[in-house]
Design a protein around this nucleic acid. Structure first.
Length: 891
DNA sequence: AGAATCACG
DNA sequence: ACGTACGTGATTCTG
């Protein structure tokens, strides 16, 4: 029989994490009496996940008792200087305990000891009694308890994301065993607990020392053998601190607890009390999880909310019941199974028209003139969830949707794209509506994904969806207004969704013949290279396996490993490039990899997705990226090779619809740098763009202090180009040095020169970070937002990342805004001029068209015009174009 | 399912 | 003292 399971939770630290995980929702989570409830709510959510995951027989939640503990006796400043627990959190703690009691879970605290020590003590008791122990905490200190039978789960980001520490994982992360971790902490100290450790010793050094000596004591026993150094001096000076640190860091696993293992067995849930508790806290979600009579629970994660909807099932014979007058609000939802709506099976549909819901699982009813007319009439405005999906789906039924004016998914994405889920249930939940079940729940996933046969289940699901689109519309529109995003929504995202639907439906023709020819060529080449590599290596192995490749290169052949990954040696391009001169096999591996990539991802990959019409129909994800860019899937048309000769061949397979037609390509020149010049207002850079200089050469002239761009060498230009890119990304000297393979010092010099020459760009960067700090988000020229909660992070790396993001997002995002506007104007132009040319692909700063022969002259003229005039800036936008009989030749 | 790698802007 | 460019998606191997 499997071991019994014991779950131990550090109540204070988890509540602390829970509180801050939903800190921004603090004022939204209040019960009628004004009590904050965000931590209680999140604690329960986390608890459900853990209980479900661990399925424990015994559970204990430990809390800290009072302020002073035995550690303060050893060290008066223990945890000194730590900010006080905010009142908004401490007021919730008693209720967390009440909730736990109602759930049949024991809590415990012990005078003079911290929750850590209680947990340590029970972990040992559990292990002794043959339990498998799981510890849940927000505090890494407890990882020292990890052992063969004890796993320590530490909250990562937020509270729902837990990292499991086993002794093995500990070793990977810190390089030491769990018990050695105590010694490591003794040396490095702990800022949050306010004890210092040894001067100049951080995690890296501490880990290294403990790996060498095993413990603090042993280190000091052998310190005389250490050769004289600053480190040795510091170690000797701070010996007391290290020894004290060890005492403080050690969890007391032998506290005088007054309860035993039998006292913490899970008891039955008291549903009556629990119901009253949820009511008091106004937790509608949890209430809905309780069955009506409240004496038994559904399983813990189920979200059956049993909202019984009123609706009318439509048939051929009762369509007359529907009357739509102009000005009526029509909500529409079209259900399809799975993400790929170009092919997905239809599930059914629902309308809500003047307070009544009409629905059916038979989508062919939509082809009836009456319903079709509703969907196609521009003057009848429709509200949906996912305009593009709905439009493409209807198109497959021969219905050309017009008049969709509101898209709940798009609205929600603009308001806050931190959670970019396209699951309607999840979107609803963000706005406090728990009525909609998730599709995953209703339809299942993978092999068992299917349409519910029970009409009640399916119809209830469809009905809740149209209902929720209507219910939340006002809230979402108000938010958009508050964010000054009405225009972004109505004049950019909604129209561009319509344009994208057209593009996806058109697709682009891909010639399978061209690809199969390449397939044969590459297969021969791969075979040849494979053989050479095996000969060189002296054995056959899987070149695609980084593990096997690493073994051959670094163990068998004894090459120098330059970089390591979590799982072994890195064999990435930059590593191999550095080893190129050591052995001819390296070059062969690089070529092999390159061709193998093209073969599998592009040749085979594309052949797999060519539809019956000889075309590929990608899906542009409009509500995914953090910056406002599109992404493309199934297939991804935004990363078709262009950088290598072999890769570029793939583009020859992309051809116009008509054999004598053209693929026309037009791309913005330096759009991100132009946006930077615009938003920073930098005079020097604006001037460069106005005069039409080669911007990288201009930058080279500036940072290398030359008189004229004529003096710029190709190397200088290359370096200047890298600096320009770096600036857009939120540069660091390290990043630039790595990119250019130069010293950090030299990189820093370039950057300093750059800022000297373009002073307003530095100002922009500072302002961008300041803006994000004050407002909590970054914003594009069209008011697209990206929230940056990490801008306030304590952790330097996390915070720095957010700062670079604050700099980059307005640039990347504004460029995305601009091309979206261009696309809308472009589609309108094509329509107005009644052209047969189709816009088929967007690649961030580039638009691709499928052009009939006799329209090429027109297209040549209008596409660059439309792109260049999408917005009016202080500097010109420039778009370059080219065309040919396939994508390869269109440059 | 996650990591590693590499394709694009 | 720290570790580091910004966005994405597909394939392959591996536990």
């Amino acid at each position: 029989m499997a071991n019994q399971k014991l779950l131990l939770i550090d109540g204070n630290s988890v509540a602390f994490r829970a509180f801050y995980a939903l800190y921004r929702q603090l004022e939204n989570f209040r019960n009628p009496e004004g009590l904050h409830t965000n931590a209680i709510y999140t604690f329960k959510n986390m608890l459900d996940v853990v209980l479900n995951n661990v399925q424990p027989d015994h559970v204990l939640v430990a809390f800290d008792a009072g302020k002073t503990t035995f550690r303060n006796k050893m060290y008066a400043d223990y945890k000194g200087g730590r900010q006080k627990t905010p009142g908004e959190l401490s007021e919730q703690l008693p209720y967390v305990q009440e909730l736990l009691h109602d759930l049949g879970i024991s809590t415990y605290e012990l005078e003079n000891y911290e929750a850590d020590d209680i947990i340590g003590t029970f972990a040992k008791i559990g292990e002794k009694n043959g339990f498998d122990v799981t510890v849940v905490t927000g505090d890494k200190d407890l990882t020292q308890l990890a052992s063969e039978h004890t796993t320590v789960m530490v909250t990562k980001s937020g509270v729902m994301n837990l990292e499991s520490y086993t002794p093995e994982h500990m070793k990977e992360v810190n390089g030491v065993t769990p018990t050695e971790f105590i010694d490591m902490k003794a040396l490095m100290g702990d800022n949050s607990d306010n004890y210092p450790g040894v001067t100049k010793v951080g995690p890296k050094k501490a880990s290294q020392l403990i790996q060498e000596y095993g413990s603090v004591e042993n280190l000091y026993d052998h310190i005389d053998d250490m050769k004289a150094s600053k480190l040795k001096e510091n170690l000797l000076n701070d010996k007391d601190k290290a020894l004290l640190g060890k005492k403080l860091a050690t969890i007391n696993c032998d506290t005088p607890v007054t309860i035993g293992i039998d006292d913490i067995k899970r008891r039955p849930v008291d549903y009556q009390k629990l119901r009253r508790f949820y009511e008091k806290m106004n937790f509608r979600k949890f209430l809905s999880e309780l069955t009506p009579d409240g004496d038994s629970s559904k399983n813990e994660t189920s979200q059956d909310s049993h909202v019984k909807m009123e609706y009318t099932e439509l048939t051929k014979n009762n369509l007359a019941k529907i009357t739509v007058n102009e000005g009526d609000e029509v909500i529409f939802y079209l259900g399809m199974l799975g993400p790929n709506y170009h092919l997905a099976e239809f599930v059914g549909f629902a309308f809500k028209i003047s307070k009544q819901i009409f629905l059916s699982r038979d989508v062919t009813l939509l082809q009836d003139a009456k319903l079709k007319q509703i969907l196609e009439n521009k003057k009848i405005s429709k509200d949906v969830f996912d305009l593009k999906r709905t439009t493409v789906g209807l198109n497959r039924l021969g219905i050309h949707a017009h008049g969709i004016e509101y898209d709940m998914l798009l609205a929600s994405y603009l308001i806050n794209n931190e959670n970019n889920s396209d699951d309607m249930a999840e979107v609803c939940r963000m706005y406090g509506n728990d009525t909609v079940r998730s599709d995953l729940d209703v339809y299942g996933k993978g092999k068992s994904e299917k349409i519910p046969t029970d009409d009640d289940v399916l119809y209830n699901h469809l009905a809740t969806k149209v209902e929720a689109i209507e219910t939340l519309k006002e809230t979402l529109l108000a938010k958009l207004k508050e964010h000054e995003q009405d225009d972004l929504f109505a004049s950019i995202e909604i129209p561009v969704a319509r344009v994208l639907a057209i593009m996806e439906i058109n697709g682009i023709k891909v010639q399978a013949d061209t690809l199969t020819e390449l397939q044969d060529e590459f297969a021969v080449e791969l075979k040849k290279m494979e053989k050479q590599i095996y000969d060189e290596a002296g054995e056959e192995f899987n070149i695609n396996s980084p593990k096997q490749l690493g073994h051959i290169l670094f163990e068998k052949m004894g090459l120098k490993p330059i970089k390591k990954t979590k799982t072994g040696y890195s064999t990435s391009v930059d590593v191999l490039n550095q080893l190129k001169d050591e052995n001819p096999i390296i070059g062969q591996i690089l070529s092999y990899r390159q061709i193998a990539k093209i073969q599998s991802t592009y040749v085979n990959g594309l052949l797999d997705v060519i539809q019956k019409d000889g075309r590929v129909h990608t899906r542009y994800l409009q509500t995914l990226t953090a910056t406002g860019r599109l992404s493309s899937v199934d297939p991804n048309l935004q990363n078709i090779p262009t950088r290598t000769e072999e890769g570029k061949q793939i583009r020859k397979a992309f051809v116009p619809s008509e054999p004598d037609g053209y693929i026309f390509s037009c791309d913005y020149s330096q759009i991100e740098l132009r946006v930077l010049a615009q938003v920073s207002g930098d005079e020097q850079m604006q001037e460069a763009f106005r005069t039409g200089y080669d911007i990288h050469a201009h930058t080279a002239m500036k940072i290398f202090h030359l008189k004229s761009t004529d003096d710029v060498t190709p190397l200088m230009r290359r370096r200047a180009k890298a600096v320009n890119f770096g600036i857009v990304y939120g540069i660091s000297d390290y990043g630039l040095s790595k990119n250019l393979n130069i010293s950090r010092k030299q990189a820093k010099e370039f950057i300093d020169n750059y800022f000297e020459q373009y002073p307003q760009i530095r100002e922009y960067m500072d302002k961008a970070v300041k803006f994000a700090r004050e407002k909590g988000y970054a914003e594009t020229i069209m008011h697209r937002r990206r929230y940056l909660p990490d801008i306030h992070a304590k952790n330097y790396n996390v915070r720095s990342f957010a700062e670079r993001t604050a700099i980059n997002s307005p640039i990347q995002g504004s460029a995305a805004d601009i091309i979206k506007i261009a696309m809308i104007n472009m589609q309108k132009k094509l329509n107005d001029l009644h052209l047969k040319t189709k816009m088929v692909v967007q690649v961030h700063d580039e638009l691709i068209f499928d052009v009939p022969k006799d329209e090429i002259e027109t297209i040549k003229k209008i596409v660059p015009e439309v792109m260049q005039s999408a917005v009016t800036l202080d500097i010109p936008l420039v778009a370059d174009s080219g065309y040919g009989h396939n994508w390869f030749d269109a440059k």
